[in-house]
Design a protein around this nucleic acid. Sequence first.
DNA 1: TATGTAGATTGATGGCCGTCGATCTGGTGC
DNA 2: GCACCAGATCGACGGCCATCAATCTACATA
Lengths: 117, 117
Amino acid sequence: MAVDLVLAPKQKRAAGERCCEPVVYPDVERDQALRIAVVAKALGDPIRLQLVDVLRKHAGKVCVCELVPLFDVSQSTLSHHLKVLRGAGIVESERRGLWAYYYVLPDALKELSAWLS
Amino acid sequence: MAVDLVLAPKQKRAAGERCCEPVVYPDVERDQALRIAVVAKALGDPIRLQLVDVLRKHAGKVCVCELVPLFDVSQSTLSHHLKVLRGAGIVESERRGLWAYYYVLPDALKELSAWLS
DNA sequence: TATGTAGATTGATGGCCGTCGATCTGGTGC
DNA sequence: GCACCAGATCGACGGCCATCAATCTACATA
């Protein structure tokens, strides 16, 4: 119970010895780290990564009906992945009649890319 | 072009109308996509992202005891995150006496970074 | 109107993830 | 030997994720 108020110098590191250089606080702020992590997390699935790859290599907007046969998952699963990418702000969609077109937002990957460099 | 050469009767697309450009297969192979996704997934957590940020900004190797107070999680949780990063091939560790030092592997983020550019 | 179609949504399921306290490991110093 | 320490590992818990078949929603065409 009664603890010695004084934080005794239980520092045992031998004279002059330090484990390493002084503390360095993260350069990226918490908000920024969160934003970047959200994008990275969305890219953290092989199918979503390849989805973004296809959309990026394609100048225009790609119809979902062209995307589905490229992958070995059901249509509903692919739709889910596209929704996740939309939620992360990486892609956007546009409806034309029966078809839906997806495209990568220009600046979506900029912050992550910049942080990596 | 040669659009009209009709294949199946079920095709309902109005004359000459197509949903979009022809199919484009993913540029990144499945193996490569998987490797990149593994790295992205590991970075998909704010704490791990900031961990990598600190280690990267630091030239040498950083002691775990300096990392723990930077984050609002328990020591065991931080140790877990470091293990995940190690599993993804992003960081490596080295023991010196009681202390453990972590550092970013030089080429760890190269493939992801290259893909983003 | 009725039928067919593209794509989104729902609900269920099994597995994985982030977090913690507690414990274990092995190196240090008395 | 013994006590202490840094860091890894364990076991458990709650929540989130990837997947599917089934269903729903618009739109298009007859």
